[in-house]
Simulated assay, not measured.
Amino acid sequence: MELPKYIQNKIKQQNEAVRKAQELRCEILNWSDKSGIDTWSKEFKQANGLLDEAVAPIDGEILLQLYKNVNEI
């Protein structure tokens, strides 16, 4: 049993988007640092949003195991 192809594609798309977002974040952080902005300040951290709002990569293997467990019932 495997995950449906469209879900595999969605996982791939999300993981690619997260990777791209991380690249963009690094570029912004580097620019901010080079521009003299205190990237450790409370204000800068507020500008970057809260971690609980973030989207993270999905581990397809774990999702597959959960899917298998649900379908065993």
Score class of each variant (00 low, 15 high):
S35K: 01
L24T: 12
W31I: 05
S35Q: 03
C26F: 13
D33E: 05
D33I: 02
K20Y: 07
C26N: 10
A17R: 15
S32I: 03
R19C: 07
Q22T: 14
E16V: 05
E16W: 12
Q22Y: 10
E27T: 01
S32Q: 10
L29M: 13
G36F: 05
E23Q: 14
S32R: 02
D33A: 07
L24I: 13
D38I: 01
K42F: 08
E27I: 04
A21K: 06
K20G: 02
V18W: 12
C26L: 14
G36E: 04
R25S: 14
Q22K: 15
E27F: 06
S35H: 01
S35I: 01
I37P: 01
I28K: 09
W40A: 15
F44G: 00
D38T: 01
C26T: 12
E23S: 08
K42D: 13
N15Q: 10
C26I: 15
A21C: 04
T39W: 05
W31Q: 06
W40Y: 04
K34W: 05
T39Y: 06
N15W: 11
G36W: 04
I37A: 00
W31F: 10
L29Y: 15
W31K: 12
E23N: 12
T39F: 13
D33Q: 05
D38R: 00
D38C: 01
D33F: 06
Q22S: 15
E16L: 12
E16S: 09
E27A: 15
Q13T: 14
K20L: 13
Q22W: 07
K34V: 02
E16C: 03
E23R: 02
R19H: 11
A21H: 12
N30F: 05
T39A: 03
N15G: 09
K20M: 08
V18T: 09
S32G: 06
S35E: 11
N15D: 10
E43I: 01
L29N: 11
K34Y: 06
T39H: 08
N30K: 10
S35D: 04
K20C: 06
I37Q: 00
E16Q: 13
Q14W: 07
Q13M: 06
S32T: 05
E23C: 01
K42L: 02
G36L: 03
G36N: 07
N30Y: 12
S41Y: 04
E27R: 08
L29A: 11
I28C: 03
N30T: 08
S41C: 02
N15V: 13
A21D: 06
K20Q: 13
S41M: 03
D33C: 07
N15P: 07
W40K: 11
Q22P: 06
R19A: 15
K20D: 10
K20V: 11
L24M: 14
A17Q: 14
E43S: 02
Q14S: 07
E27N: 08
W31S: 11
G36H: 03
I28T: 06
S41E: 04
S32Y: 04
Q22L: 13
D33S: 04
E43F: 01
R25Y: 12
I28Y: 07
I28S: 07
D33H: 05
S35V: 00
L29V: 09
T39I: 14
W31N: 10
D33W: 08
C26Y: 15
Q13H: 12
T39V: 13
K34S: 14
V18P: 05
K34P: 02
E23A: 11
R25V: 08
G36Q: 04
A17N: 15
R19Q: 10
W40G: 09
